[in-house]
């Protein structure tokens, strides 16, 4: 019967639509990442450290604040060695953070960064960061972790303070 054929093809189309939308839900994950990386939305710092050229703008000063949080599942101490510094855009700076494993077990941890305000995220370039990789900690180990960064001179005029926030996670719990 032709009517049954009509039904069958329409049902097939609708089922394909359903499966496609299920896939689209998962496709949103990489799309979201790409979107955030291109735009710096969501305070996501530029992961790909572009070859940074030093062009210091000595007339301008920007305050960098370091904020750290230890996730509730991690038994660590984690803090910046200096909690804020004043920098010139276009100049390379170093900062160190200290983390301590409070347990007597071997631990693998990672710090996840976030930058505020959003409009500063794409202009804050990390050349070297402990957050790029997972960190192994021996029992009760305490060590300093380096950060090397440069603030892009194209940072919008109205930004005078950038907050770099790290959350420290224990990857084994």
């Amino acid at each position: 019967m032709p009517e049954h054929d009509d039904n069958r093809s329409l049902v097939a189309q609708l089922l394909i639509m359903t499966v496609a939308m299920f896939g689209f839900g998962f496709l949103l994950v990489p799309l979201y990442d790409v979107f955030c990386e291109i735009t710096g939305f969501g305070g996501r710092p530029n992961a790909a450290a572009a070859a940074a050229v030093e062009m210091p703008d000595l007339k301008r000063e920007v305050r960098i604040q370091f904020v750290t949080t230890v996730n509730s599942n991690a038994r660590f101490e984690f803090a910046p060695d200096v909690s804020n510094m004043t920098v010139h855009p276009g100049k390379m700076y170093y900062a160190t953070f200290t983390a301590k494993n409070l347990t007597s077990q071997h631990k693998v941890a990672q710090a996840v960064p976030s930058i505020a305000p959003v409009s500063a995220a794409e202009h804050f370039t990390k050349i070297e960061c402990f957050c790029f990789t997972t960190q192994d900690f021996l029992p009760n180990e305490e060590r300093a972790m380096p950060l090397q960064f440069i603030v892009n001179p194209e940072l919008p005029e109205y930004v005078d303070t950038i907050t770099l926030q790290y959350t420290f996670f224990d990857l084994e719990t």
Binding site: F22, G25, N71, T167, F169
Partner: peptide, 24 residues
Amino acid sequence: PVLAGAVTMLLTDQFFGTSFFLAA
């Protein structure tokens, strides 16, 4: 289907070691 996908991601985050929504 998008909701089904989202809750499936929650399920795999909880039981199958994925990290769709886990910052760590």
